[in-house]
Computed example of a mutant assay.
Amino acid sequence: MTESLRRPALAFLAVLGGLLWFGPGASAQQLAGCTRDVAENPRRFVFRCPGGLTVEAEPGSGAAVASAAPDGTPRAVSVRAKAVLVDLEPRQGRRFEIRAPQAIASVRGTVYAVDVSRGQSSVFVVEGRVRVAGRAGQGAVTLSPGEGVDVRAGAPLTVRRWPQPRASALLARFGR
């Protein structure tokens, strides 16, 4: 495989112990101009990518680019633990998803959070609409602002309006 074909295939983003890693010889600027900042109170990593995509990740989330466009712009990010917050400006025909152990949350433009804890992936929508599919074949639901779903293997997907304390506690982890 040539280097020009290998680099996009190998490039990925991971937050491990506070380090950003894009694969051999790559840097944040080489991934379609994505930049990384560290935000405080609370501490989190903020990735800004072309096309109006911002992903905030808690340290230790294991966030990683799971799929990228030919130009390197992330199309999907996986998260193994803790939480990420996504802000994606609406754009015709553009899709983006977060892949968690129990769920896949996909959007075209919105603000939402995905929180992964032992045996459960929770998705909460701040703005827009998010489609959430269970990875164990439970089907899919669409969430609107203020709604969330807790996804567990084998359990049905039930959309609920989250109580203010729960929504506020999740968003506070991102300084909101």
Rank of each mutant, 00 (worst) to 15 (best):
D87G: 08
Q138K: 02
V141A: 05
E3G: 12
T35L: 11
R152Y: 01
Q92K: 12
L88T: 01
A172Q: 14
R80N: 09
A28G: 09
G134Y: 07
A105P: 03
A136Y: 02
R173V: 05
A81W: 05
E56I: 02
A113L: 14
A76V: 09
G60S: 09
A133H: 00
L143Q: 03
V132R: 10
F12G: 09
A76I: 06
V141L: 05
L85D: 06
F96P: 11
I98K: 00
A11G: 06
V111Y: 00
L13D: 05
G51A: 05
P145Y: 05
S61H: 07
L88P: 08
R129Q: 15
R36G: 13
S4N: 08
P163C: 11
T73S: 13
A32C: 12
R91K: 13
P163T: 08
R161T: 13
A83W: 04
A68C: 10
V65M: 03
A9F: 15
G148F: 00
G137Y: 01
R48C: 01
S27N: 08
S121M: 01
R108P: 04
R166M: 15
V149N: 01
L85I: 01
V77A: 04
L19I: 08
R44Y: 14
E147I: 07
E89M: 05
S122E: 14
R166C: 11
G93N: 08
S61I: 04
R166W: 15
V114H: 13
F124V: 15
R152V: 03
G119N: 10
V130K: 03
G51Q: 09
A140N: 08
P74K: 07
W21C: 02
E89R: 12
V125N: 05
R75P: 04
S4D: 12
G51E: 06
L157Y: 06
G128L: 00
R94L: 14
R95A: 14
L10G: 02
C49Y: 07
G18L: 12
T110K: 04
F12M: 05
G139R: 03
Q164I: 10
S144K: 06
P90Q: 06
A68Q: 15
A28K: 02
A64F: 07
R161C: 03
D150L: 09
E127T: 08
R108W: 04
S67H: 08
Y112L: 00
Q92I: 13
K82S: 12
P42W: 09
R75T: 12
S27I: 05
P163H: 13
A105T: 02
G62M: 09
V132T: 08
D150G: 14
P59K: 14
E3R: 15
P90M: 03
A32T: 06
G93C: 01
V55A: 06
F124M: 15
D150H: 11
Q92P: 04
